[in-house]
Amino acid sequence: MTVIGAWNIENFFEPGGPFGPSDRATFDRKVALLAETIRSADVDVLAVEEVGDPTAFEELRARLGDGWSGVLSTHFEVDHPIRVGFLSRLPIEESSEFFDIPPLLQAAPTGDDGAPLATMGRGALRIRVRLGADPLDLVAAHLKSKLLSFPGRTPNATSFVPRDEAQRARYGAYALNRRAAEAAAVRGYADDLLAGDGSTRLVAVMGDLNDEVRAATTQILQGPPGSEIGTAGENHPDRGDAWRLLNLAPLIPEERRFSRIFEGRKELIDHILVSTALRHRITSADTVTGATQLPSITVDAAARKDSPVSDHAMVVATIEG
């Protein structure tokens, strides 16, 4: 049995600085709670999002104990340097990262300045491990947030409050454009991994997709429609099986089918999508919060700077063999 998971560990920075907690005690408490939750989930490989400092990541890896290795993406936005990574108890045979937006989507508007969208904000990362003798490719991704930020009234400043409703609408559209283009980039990379052989290749795309199951951006990642879990076509092979990624969300018990609470509303925005071959080996999926309750958050991200717990639940899947 092998357990894989994905977890947004929320602005994981060393203390001090613009994003990290105010003091070492708060940071140490967060490291301890993260490690406790990871151990209680008994995961073998965990994709993590919102890692700010490589040094913080290394402290978490060390806290997990011997036998854990890790790898981080090197592509992130300079203004908010959060990135994706993997922690693993299984040997990582190889890794690679990607971040290029498909050329035909680079003209999509993402701000009033009209700057072209050449790369993903947070680069995606792939690792390869083994399930027995079989290679398993895992891709970690963190797509553009639904929480909107707007140009401030001074150069290089940002604000979470729009100047007017027209600006709110534009930047909502810009964020959606960017998230959709990033989803298409990850989908294209998954196509390369599947290579038209998803009925035998073991592939998973996982992470914070910042949208729910039926959202258009999440649907982009799934590829050919049909045979979704829980539908009439689930157990009927078809031509789409060679390319399809299946979202494991329906396997999560309904009462725990959420990974974030935003202004009191439960939503599942963290996902694990798997190839047809890997779906046949999945026995269960779930969310994990550990010993702490998931907090309800607002658009004020700065208010959580000193919170020792993540605002996301971990999403996990169990694989036989």
Score class of each variant (00 low, 15 high):
Val213Phe: 05
Glu228Val: 00
Lys144Ser: 01
Asp241Pro: 03
Leu105Asp: 15
Arg128Glu: 08
Glu320Leu: 12
Pro116Gln: 12
Asp66Gln: 08
Thr37Tyr: 08
Arg244Lys: 15
Asn177Leu: 07
Arg187Cys: 01
Ala175Trp: 11
Tyr189Thr: 02
Arg126Cys: 13
Asp311Gly: 15
Ser227Phe: 01
Gly226Met: 06
Lys146Val: 03
Val31Arg: 12
Thr119Phe: 15
Lys30Val: 00
Gly20Met: 06
Arg244Trp: 07
Ala133Leu: 07
Leu72Met: 10
Ser145Trp: 06
Ser22Met: 02
His75Trp: 14
Asp286Glu: 11
Thr158Gln: 15
Ala291Cys: 00
Ala32Gln: 11
Pro102Asp: 14
Glu49Arg: 13
Ala204Trp: 00
Val288Gln: 12
Tyr189Asp: 14
Pro116Trp: 09
Ala215Gln: 05
Ala303Ser: 15
Pro253Phe: 09
Ala302Phe: 13
Arg126Ala: 14
Arg61Glu: 10
Glu59Ile: 03
Ile269Val: 15
Arg178Phe: 01
Glu320Gly: 14
Leu147Asp: 05
Gly230Asn: 04
Lys266Leu: 02
Arg257Met: 09
Phe76Glu: 11
Phe13Ser: 11
Asp306Ser: 00
Asp286Arg: 08
Phe160Lys: 15
Asp28Met: 13
Thr292Ile: 01
Gly5Lys: 01
His80Pro: 02
Val299Ile: 09
Gly67Arg: 00
Ala35Arg: 07
Arg257Val: 05
Phe98Arg: 13
Pro116Lys: 09
Leu131Ala: 04
Glu267His: 11
Ile229His: 07
Ala6Asn: 07
Glu58Ser: 05
Ala232Ser: 03
Leu138Asn: 08
Leu251Cys: 10
Leu125His: 13
Asp241Thr: 03
Ala62Val: 06
Thr158Glu: 14
Arg304Thr: 12
Arg281Leu: 05
Leu147Glu: 07
Lys30Ser: 06
Asp238Asn: 15
Leu34Ala: 10
Glu59Thr: 10
Leu278Thr: 07
Thr318Arg: 15
Ala175Phe: 14
Thr26Met: 03
Gly121Lys: 12
Trp68Thr: 12
Gly240Trp: 06
Ala204Gln: 06
His75Tyr: 07
Phe76Lys: 10
Phe99Tyr: 15
Thr287Ser: 11
